[in-house]
Nucleic acid binder design. Sequence first.
DNA 1: ATGCACAATGCAACCGCTTGCCATTATAGT
DNA 2: ACTATAATGGCAAGCGGTTGCATTGTGCAT
Lengths: 345, 345
Amino acid sequence: MATIRDVAARAGVNPSTVSRAFSGQAKISEDTRQRIFVAAEALNFHPNAIARSLSVRRTQTIAIVIPHIFPGFFEDSFFPQVIRGLLEVAYQRGFRVLVGGSNSHEDNITQTFQILGSQQADGIVVLSNRLDVDTVGALRKQKMPFVLVGRPPAHYADVSWVDADNERYTQMAVAYLIQQGHQRIAFVGGDPEVAVTRERLKGYQAALDAAGIRACPEWIDYGYFAEAGGYTAVQRMARLDKMAPTAYYAANDLMAIGVMRALRTLQIAVPDQVSVIGTNNAPESLHVVPALTTVHVPYADMAALAAEILITAITNDERPIAQRYVDCELLIRDSTGPYRPDRAE
Amino acid sequence: MATIRDVAARAGVNPSTVSRAFSGQAKISEDTRQRIFVAAEALNFHPNAIARSLSVRRTQTIAIVIPHIFPGFFEDSFFPQVIRGLLEVAYQRGFRVLVGGSNSHEDNITQTFQILGSQQADGIVVLSNRLDVDTVGALRKQKMPFVLVGRPPAHYADVSWVDADNERYTQMAVAYLIQQGHQRIAFVGGDPEVAVTRERLKGYQAALDAAGIRACPEWIDYGYFAEAGGYTAVQRMARLDKMAPTAYYAANDLMAIGVMRALRTLQIAVPDQVSVIGTNNAPESLHVVPALTTVHVPYADMAALAAEILITAITNDERPIAQRYVDCELLIRDSTGPYRPDRAE
DNA sequence: ATGCACAATGCAACCGCTTGCCATTATAGT
DNA sequence: ACTATAATGGCAAGCGGTTGCATTGTGCAT
């Protein structure tokens, strides 16, 4: 590999001049610039990014760590969308994305700090999904910039994050079901230990409260974001007889699909007898029959915004705190309809 | 940020000793090792990976470039699976994954060479999907290790790759349809410019040939991997009347789903009247009704194998060439059945 | 002519870690 | 007591760019 010194020697200039010629910043006479480029070309010289990073203390890289062992991470559309958003902004701002794996929640933190501590990246986007580990507290103790996807506990007022207003949009979705005449509405959440699950549950309750409906604990279940979780939730709740839900809200589309499968098995028609609403607008939500009514959560946009905030923090030396909600949208498709007492089983 | 010298000063040793203590390779007396770690701890020292990379000429990073502008890349399960496989092996071998974006096929090459030229990674996994650009030829001209996911043109005998035997498995899938009694079988391919599409078409032809069926050009269409592509293919072919296909092979599940949607619209029952077979075993293939018979292509495994080969090439200095097919599997579900002349429209 | 501003390069010290080589010291063997 | 040998750790030269400062050269006003 040719180095800057080889090029300098061949062009008959000082290495620093070559550096300046390549950086494009300094003024170099057109003549020597030519000589340098010719020499570089002849030697097939490409500046070494690592050396440059060491010198300028900037890697032009943002990082993210992905718990690669949770298969759901790759089946749900969440992860691909996040990468997509990240990549798009990073590309456009001349950054690369460094992805680290992790095989547990604890390891996730370890990896995050390893990347940051060893300065492999200039900043990191953190998928802060667990409540039980204080990643944020630790992150604040160090100076590398970071942005959370997902709002942290309220007492961390001084960190940047991007999130969907899960409570609000869940409330909206459930309110829509209520507006369709449903009163017995089930909530099929994801992992109860995850922040979004709690936020959504709050939204669910709020919607019921606003309508003066008394929530029944039997209507609440957790499917851990898996299709089978939705399925078993229905198996249990459908037995509730007079108290059986006439509508299901599921915290992701996969579970909603599981709900629909269970209903099909039980010969309960959707949406004629029971309505189902999902979350995320995963590709399959559109392909399933009936097409699933769902809350579109723009994960790619969230990640893009996070990347944008992060890169801005990296490139400007000041680090303004940015906390932003993105807009979601209720996509009404064919799995929801008005409550029809006459058609109830 | 504390450096190795700071630690050395505090521990009263030479920087090189600190380096050795951290690398764990050299023999250091237990006593000084302790002093060094205590000092490092006190100073919150973390070795700088960039500096280390520059010195050892190894980044412990493998790269991949993703054409982030093709939305299909993120909707099909291909890309997430690839990342997953890569990440898993990289993690386990102590590597990170550097992802670069690209916004066109040409740019894909540019980015690939930029990463390699600037030595931001030790090697790269290349998604070599286009026939019209000679990435492989260019890659061979440089010395950084690389592995292709997808077999290159046959005349490149000396490069490493991992692939599914698309021809063979397509043939197997179509043969299964023939075995079910179907004779008029449609082929809905992806992008005709992409290598896998041609390979699959070959397999399709081979299966027909083997059964002595004369292929009808009307049965061949290209859906560019999009759901709508499958839909329109059916719209055209279903009008073929006596020559209308009684079975459809689609080169991905998304198109197969489009095929099923079109058939539903036309009130043609699957599998009673017409059979449909997809490819890839995308998550939705299981959730759709009827569940889609499909060819499972283990993209995660392919990527994992590619990463394995790449990292081995990086860590051993010799670079054996590895060329491997992974096994696919025909998953027979509910969208295919025997040909029933009585039920034809 | 003289001085001065300014453009174009050169010089050399750095960025932080690694490692071949050598010096020192400890341990052992006779 | 006296080397031979092994175990430690210091020295310094890298790895390949970058950049503040010094130096040289050129044109222009005085």
